[in-house]
């Protein structure tokens, strides 16, 4: 997917790590505390997480630390993961649904180094999954925690930039403005023109940003058996959706929420249910569609091959 660039010498291509199965635990770099953060910082973050779980969808401010990865690259998710990770956890990191995107690789390597935990590319094997922009296709279970990286936790920020004012709106559940925006979308475009980061109501009380996952993934959040945690490092907010909590995408009765997906089958595994990436294959308009969730796709291909 990525090579160092045009310079001929550095090798590119070739899969970095095993073939997707769990990698045994690594020796952690003892120059750092387990999972990088010191224990009192972890405790502070866990308190914020507990508060978030107690008030589903409510954004809890927390003392976000400067991490060795840049803000906007997953510092919130990394701090949440660092605070909940134990030595026996199995960690999966995805970005855009894939385990081998550069940032996912980099975050996985970070935790191998500072926590020495086992990592995996298989959704089913993971106990903690840190994600940017996707929810895995395979249904998650009660034993799993999904940690979202969140660039902008405030769902109202495009309508109201002042944080003090949006806090008041949340406190009073004053969400008419969000519906006005959806109304305007339909009046102008004939349908709600939000295709990702599509706002949701959590447990009928708090309006929440699901992070920039495609709207296609929104229904997976509803009554999910796994705990969902959201970390926004730069904006210094944590929020949560406890297992089996109702998460509803905003809509109108006569313009119901519709998850969008490219109307094609995956060119590799043939799936017509999964979310697809469009891949340009040549400069004459040629393109194919493939699963964005690489683990899901690999598994289906293996099943198909075994059946043949």
């Amino acid at each position: 997917m990525t090579s160092a660039a045009a310079k001929p010498s550095p090798p590119s291509g070739g899969r970095g790590l095993g073939e997707g199965g769990a990698q045994g635990a690594y020796a952690h770099d003892t120059g750092y505390n387990f999972a990088y953060l010191d224990e009192s910082t972890k405790r502070m973050i866990r308190r914020a997480i507990l508060k978030g779980v107690a008030i589903p969808g409510h954004q809890v401010p927390f003392g976000s630390r400067e991490m060795p990865l840049p803000y906007g690259w997953g510092t919130g998710g990394i701090q949440v993961t660092a605070s909940i990770l134990g030595p026996s956890d199995v960690l999966k990191v995805i970005d855009q649904g894939a385990d081998d995107t550069t940032n996912a690789v980099s975050i996985r390597a970070f935790f191998r180094r500072v926590a020495g935990v086992a990592t995996t590319e298989r959704t089913a094997e993971a106990t903690v999954i840190q994600t940017r922009h996707r929810i895995p296709e395979r249904q998650l279970t009660e034993g799993q925690i999904l940690v979202y990286q969140v660039p902008m936790p405030e769902p109202l920020f495009r309508l109201e930039a002042r944080v003090a004012e949006t806090k008041r709106m949340h406190a009073l559940a004053d969400y008419g403005l969000m519906h006005v925006k959806l109304y305007e979308d339909i009046a102008r475009h004939g349908h709600i023109a939000t295709s990702y980061n599509y706002p949701v109501m959590v447990d009928g009380r708090y309006l929440m940003s699901p992070s920039p996952i495609p709207a296609f993934d929104n229904p997976k959040m509803d009554r999910m058996p796994a705990l969902q945690l959201f970390g926004a490092g730069r904006e210094k907010r944590i929020y949560a959706v406890p297992p089996y909590t109702a998460v509803r995408s905003l809509d109108f009765e006569d313009h119901p929420f519709r998850p969008i997906r490219a109307p094609h089958a995956c060119a590799l595994c043939g799936s017509r249910e999964s979310y697809l990436d469009e891949v340009i294959t040549d400069d004459r308009g040629g393109k194919i569609f493939v699963c964005s969730d690489t683990d899901y796709c690999t598994e289906r291909q293996a099943t198909k091959a075994a059946a043949e």
Partner: peptide, 19 residues
């Protein structure tokens, strides 16, 4: 961090917008 994070892949969101 936030300006430069635009360099990270956004295939998924872009795909949604494309559709």
């Amino acid at each position: 961090g936030f300006v430069e994070h635009l360099k990270l892949p956004h295939y998924v969101d872009f795909q949604s917008d494309l559709e």
